[in-house]
Write a protein that binds this DNA or RNA. Structure first.
Length: 511
RNA sequence: GGCCCAUUCGUCUAUCGGUUAGGACGCAAGAUUUUCAUUCUUGAAAGAGCAGUUCGAUUCUGCUAUGGGCUACCA
């Protein structure tokens, strides 16, 4: 029988979620939805040192913005609550001790200083220190010390950790849904810490396996940086006797810096001029801020579409995917194996595509926000229409002000280059004439105005470009913009004449 | 250093032994246009190297090179 699909996204609240994390969450979500499964959000806050306040809220807000829905989590609740590991503290010690009793783990009493000294010694001799079978019985561990001494140390409050006792020489055969079969010999691995008495908290490895088991997680979809610890995780399932319900694993390729040379990190954003975070972030510790896709004007759909295709492809030439289409088409077998460089340019392109496909109503709502910021009152119809006329030229919704403000405000400055080209004595004469032609038009609709004005231009034998660009200078103030009749019909006769008059009275034509 | 993963145009990628190696971003040229854009057309642009398996390798295997990850009482 096919197991019920349950996946989890398990971030650590050590800062804002970056786009690599968002993609991991997305793939988990797509996989869950496609299989009618459950998406869990588990907060892995077992590192009390690196905890950052606000990070947890940020993560949830970011996922929500992206449209990644959580079925079970710290705010949603669920049958396996709590979903925050710090609140599950009481659970883990029992499991760590179970491993000690079974001989799969042992107590170690080394202090951080002792370990550092040991590492330094090894390094001085040109060797690499590894806490493993060659050394564990020579150190202060429950493997070398008499049981009574171990108990005495624990009782008198000495700090200890529980380490996994890595088998000396055993081949671990693993399977990854993306990479296929992987084999590692345990001789190359070391005895990882599973639990520390200092803060009574497990490390990632223990907490992760215990929680995935208890929460009945069926598939672990995570970043490639976890591949090296997969043998440990296999062994932990085995040690607990949970191998038969062990989840399947899929290790995702990493997101790399646009320039190559390493995985995308939180610092790259401002350095290279693109956001690495979904949302704007202010560090509560340093006060540093970082750009976010949301605040930079990206649509969540575009952001998700772009992210989905970084490391996965449908095998067809389709590029535009809604979330529903992604859910339908996603498959782990089509996730690529090698790291993908992040492409800021492609992200922009995706956003522009979504911009071009927005309906007037959607644009109206978005554009109104910007208009209000500039103290402009406009109807939704006006806002939508102006945005719709200019959207082809925009990449971000925030571009719209520069692009379309002339629909609402008369130009206060005139672009120098256009003035030079189109504001000579003859242009002024033509514009005066055009003004009177316009003032005689009753039906100021786009079609009618065009019909009449073009008739007049033909009759007079003027150059179309000269007339229209002179008018453009008066109405827009610049050498860009939509067809002039879009503008005339939008702003209306009265405003047209006013702007023409403005130009005539305020600016002397050049010779 | 050790272990693991990867390697097709500049970038993201298609190809599941036989293709003129396809698409997209970006770039260039042309067309369209009353301006700026958009749009359309076209173009330049790739199998890391060396062996092997095979009638035939981008595709399978090995080696080398390169890139990346991990190597914490961090996740």
């Amino acid at each position: 029988m096919e197991r019920k699909v349950r996946v989890r996204f398990a971030p650590s609240p050590t800062g804002p979620l970056h786009i690599g994390g968002v993609r991991t969450a997305l793939y988990n979500y797509l996989f869950a939805r496609q299989h009618g499964g459950t998406m869990i959000l588990r907060i892995e806050d077992t590192d009390s040192q690196r905890f950052v306040p606000g990070a947890e809220t940020y993560i949830m807000e970011a996922l929500q913005w992206c449209g990644i829905e959580i079925d079970e989590g710290i705010t949603e609740g669920g049958p396996y609550a709590p979903y925050r590991q710090s609140e599950r503290k009481a659970i883990y010690l029992k499991y760590a001790l179970q491993l000690v009793e079974a001989g799969w783990a042992y107590y170690a009493f080394d202090t951080a200083e002792e370990l550092n000294a040991l590492r330094a010694d090894f390094e001085a001799r040109g060797e690499t220190f590894a806490y493993n079978a060659t050394i564990r019985e020579k150190l202060a561990t429950s493997l070398s010390l008499p049981a009574t001494e171990v108990q005495r140390r624990i009782d008198c409050g000495d700090q200890w950790v529980i380490r996994f006792r890595m088998p000396e020489n055993e081949e671990i055969h693993m399977h990854d849904l993306i990479r296929g079969d992987v084999v590692v010999n345990t001789a190359t691995l070391d005895d990882k810490v599973l639990y520390k008495s200092a803060d009574a908290l497990p490390t990632y490895h223990l907490a992760n396996i215990v929680d995935d088991h208890l929460m009945e997680v069926s598939h672990v979809i995570r970043g490639e940086e976890w591949l090296p610890s997969l043998p440990l995780h296999y062994l932990l399932y085995k040690a607990f006797g949970w191998s038969d319900t062990q989840p399947e694993f899929a290790h995702l390729p990493l997101l790399l810096k646009p320039t190559g040379g390493g995985k995308l990190s939180k610092r790259d954003g401002d350095k290279m001029g693109f956001p690495v975070f979904p949302l704007f972030w202010t560090s509560p510790v340093t006060g540093e801020t970082a750009h976010g896709y949301r605040e930079d004007g990206y649509f969540p759909e575009a952001f998700i579409n772009m992210l989905a295709l970084l490391g996965w492809n449908p095998g067809t030439e389709q590029e535009m995917f809604s979330m529903d289409e992604l859910i339908q088409n996603f498959s782990l077998s089509r996730v690529s194996k090698s790291g993908a460089r992040f492409q800021p340019e492609k992200a922009k392109w995706f956003n522009a595509q979504y911009m071009h496909h927005k309906s007037d109503a959607e644009l109206a709502e978005l554009f109104q926000v910007i208009l209000r910021e500039h103290n402009i009152t406009a109807s939704n119809e006006q806002a939508g229409k102006a945005a719709s006329i200019m959207k082809e030229r925009a990449t971000f919704i925030t571009d719209l002000w520069d692009l379309a403000s002339f629909f609402f405000v008369a130009p206060s400055v005139y672009e120098e280059k256009q003035v030079k080209k189109y504001w000579k004595a003859e242009n002024a004469a033509i514009l005066r004439e055009l003004g009177s032609v316009l003032s005689d038009i009753d039906d100021f609709s786009l079609e009618n105005t065009e019909h009449i004005v073009h008739g007049w231009i033909e009759e007079k034998g003027y150059s179309l470009g000269q007339v229209m660009n002179t008018l453009r200078l008066a109405l827009v103030g610049a050498g860009k913009g939509p067809g002039m009749y879009e503008v005339t019909s939008f702003i209306g006769k009265e405003e047209c004449l006013k702007r023409i008059d403005n130009l005539m009275t305020n600016l002397q034509p050049t010779a």
